[in-house]
Amino acid sequence: MSVSIGRHLLSSQDLNNETAVALLDTAARLDAAMTGREVKKLPTLRGRTVVNLFYEDSTRTRTSFELAAKRLSADVVNFSAKGSSVSKGESLKDTALTLQAMGSDAVVIRHHLSGAPRRLATWIEGSVINAGDGTHEHPTQALLDAFTMRRRLRDGEGDLKGLRVVVVGDVLHSRVARSNVRLLRTLGAEVVLVAPPTLLPVGVAEWPCEVSYDLDSALPGADVVMMLRVQRERMTASYFPSAREYSRRYGLDAARLAKCEEHTLVMHPGPMNRGMEISAEVADDPRRSVITEQVTNGVSVRMAVLYMLLSGEGVANE
């Protein structure tokens, strides 16, 4: 295998090991290049247009993509579903054709329905970047998670071979979990999913990871504990009896964290439900928690993705 780049980034599955590592390397270089600079801007995408098409509110992800595109000197158009023709019932296809007519080079799409980015990719000529679709995938989140793990635990080089990552929470509804399981496996890490059985998809047995219902037994030996957001509303649909019971069985607090290794990192894709899946003490632990670092790293990773997808065809030899 070698580095290979398609036109779109729709799923973590679009990346093989070499490509993912090249992307992380590029993100690291960009990160280094941007730190301490007065002018936080590179001319790479001058004259290119990147559209942020957001059908779901997500200030964090939209801002991160916007910053990434702007730091590469692209023109950025924010097209949010609210207050636009989209909310007036325009179909995704018609919106796509409009964007196509406007000559956008890349569309960053966040959508509440799984697979919307893949459909979009069939209707437009430019690149499509999945910024989170329904309960399917969120590949750039997985990339920035991998970037953070690599920087903290692998000296910022190579892949994640041998790393043990425990992902805890609402796997069933989590696009972050799906993207992470795939990418982490591609990068050579072992993944353990921990959740109550109600929050694991039927068919999870086929995923390339371990599955456990017991957090306490999964923690020893973990290099990373990634907590997923659990919406309180799931309670009303009987996925679990109460927030308190969930928190007791699957929440990460200081006592549980004490069972982990010295170097174990705590991650969370945000936004957090403090006191539900993660205690405030753990979330703010300066030594273990890399939650704000994840956000910072998001910009470099998304710059690397934009650069990679908008480069010409193929891959240079050197």
Binding site: A33, L42, T44, R48, V315, A316
Partner: peptide, 21 residues
């Protein structure tokens, strides 16, 4: 000084990982 991100011909140039600056 890596110049990859300063090239004026991104469209015709294939992706390459950045070198160190």
């Amino acid at each position: 000084i890596d110049i990859t991100m300063y090239r004026d011909d991104l469209r015709s140039q294939a992706f390459r990982p950045l070198a160190e600056t």
